[in-house]
Computed example of a mutant assay.
Amino acid sequence: MTSRSAWRWCALAGLATLTISVMFGRVPGLVACGDTGGAGPIIALELVRSAADVAALFGSEPCTSRLIAAQREALWLDMLGFIPAYLTFLLSAVAALRRASLGLIMALFSAITFAGAFDFIEGLILFKLLGNLPGDQRTFTGLFWTVRPKFALLAASELMIALILWRGAPVAKIAAGVIGAGGVVALVHLLRAPHDPAMMRGHAVAWGALLVTAAIGSVRPAVPGLPERRLMAAAKP
């Protein structure tokens, strides 16, 4: 796969990721029944740590049943659409930037792959929780050790992509700054205030900048990659 074709796959998968993320907001009834601490209903469910958190999110009937049905629909959309789309998006970027340091590329590939694995496991745990509200401590512990590592690995992958892009042309350095800033914001809020909407905005900013980078790379693949002299050297036998 050439860099141009990898960037094209990245751009297409990025558009699919963006489209599916908009679809979450159109799931009927996906509105929290109580206080979420600022997080959206999906993120609030992922971050629950106790039966009290669940009770605050799902409230009482008839809101409870409505929200359970909506969360299930959102979970199916997540597992069958959003996760495959964003994994393709990020892994295509890895393929496009594969001429960077082998160690860094392998670390980036591993971070993205493990994040996706954690996300799928998280989905299974959430399906179990929705079928057995308000849940038990084992379920909450499972969520903690899948949700937090997932978000941490995604932030780390954004920082590594930014580091690779920083070695490229000036326009790539601009993208690197935006992607890196988004990753830092997401990671800081994960550690300090995961319910703050700024955490997800950080990821959104980073992925948005990567989508723009992919669009540029689809036309001029050398621009967001390594400096041209490095590309020419790598092409020599």
Rank of each mutant, 00 (worst) to 15 (best):
R201M: 14
S110L: 11
A206C: 14
A222R: 02
G225E: 04
A96N: 06
P227G: 04
A11Y: 08
V219Y: 07
T17L: 04
P237H: 08
G183M: 08
R49S: 03
A176D: 03
G182Q: 09
K128M: 01
G29Y: 14
A69N: 14
G25Q: 11
L80S: 07
D78Q: 13
R26K: 13
V223K: 00
L77Y: 11
G202E: 00
S218P: 12
R201V: 05
R192E: 01
L165K: 09
T19M: 11
W145T: 00
L12A: 15
S60L: 14
A172F: 07
S3M: 13
P84K: 06
E46W: 02
G14R: 14
A85G: 06
A69Q: 14
I42P: 07
A85F: 14
C63W: 02
L133V: 01
L133D: 07
G142F: 05
L102N: 00
D136W: 04
G116D: 10
G142E: 04
A55H: 06
W207P: 07
S65P: 09
G182F: 13
A186F: 01
L126H: 14
R167D: 10
A235D: 14
L30F: 10
P170K: 08
K173N: 09
G81T: 04
G81H: 12
V219G: 01
A175W: 15
L15G: 13
A175S: 15
C33A: 15
P227E: 07
L75K: 03
L126V: 13
A235V: 01
A206T: 12
L75D: 10
A93W: 06
R4Q: 14
R167K: 15
L210N: 06
P237R: 12
V54Y: 00
K173L: 08
G177E: 03
A70R: 09
L80I: 07
A44M: 07
H189L: 02
T113F: 12
F140L: 07
R49L: 01
F144W: 05
P134F: 08
K236G: 07
L133C: 12
T139C: 09
T113P: 10
M199Q: 06
V188I: 07
R49K: 11
I121L: 11
I179K: 01
L124N: 05
V184L: 15
L12K: 13
A181D: 02
A198H: 04
V147E: 06
W145Q: 02
E122T: 00
A115V: 12
R98Y: 02
F114N: 03
T19H: 01
